[in-house]
Design a protein around this nucleic acid. Structure first.
Lengths: 100, 100
DNA sequence: TCAAAGTGCTTTGAAATTCAAAGTTATGCA
DNA sequence: TGCATAACTTTGAATTTCAAAGCACTTTGA
């Protein structure tokens, strides 16, 4: 059987979570606003997706102050990287299975 | 900007819907049970995902009787094919953007 | 021949997720 | 002082996901 959705991680199903992880995979650290612009979502929506990924420990947070303003940066954790990588592999495999 | 989640179709986000479409992309027509086995979901769950895709007119239904038993077959519609194709392309692009 | 079990979905309703709007807290500008 | 803006967070409604139960037959076997 060529088609299999095993290996796809539920945590990365939503467009926005997939986006967050993708963007963080490429840019090692990004703040809230950068993510928001990349993904074009509302604050609340982005915040809840971030929180969900945080809860799974797929992304981490680093809160600092820049020019006396709070600045929250996000990055992928090791587990996040691993899980996302597997997810991408599963996706690739799926796509390949279809186009063959 | 390399990473973009534009082009990803909300209708195909869930693992199961992605699976339904993938399986139907490869096997032109399948019945409820075949889908169920491929995807390893409960009846109710599968039925609701199918219904959602039907509602979008991405898949069609054909009800017949085989050996006096009802038999419902599903297939991708033209629009479904188009939409799914675009979705896959967007996915591929996303993955490429990350691995570069 | 009739009850019990099975098949192939559909319906139901609870739980989880997604989302935008409103809220909060702190800074910047007039 | 006071209003606007920034950077999130909280809230709660809408939507989606899911398994269990339901339904309408059909089959099986005593």
């Amino acid at each position: 059987m060529k088609i299999s959705i095993e290996g796809l991680n539920k945590a990365f199903e939503s467009r926005i979570k997939l986006g967050i992880m993708s963007v963080l995979a490429v840019n090692h650290m990004l703040d809230f606003n950068a993510l928001k612009e990349y993904l074009d979502v509302t604050d609340g929506n982005l915040a809840s997706h971030i929180k969900a990924l945080e809860k799974e420990e797929f992304i981490g947070v680093e809160k600092t102050f820049v020019d006396r303003k709070s600045n929250t940066k996000y990055f992928m954790t090791k587990e996040g990287k691993k899980a996302f990588d597997e997810h991408l592999k599963a996706l690739e495999k799926l796509i390949k299975g279809i186009s063959e």
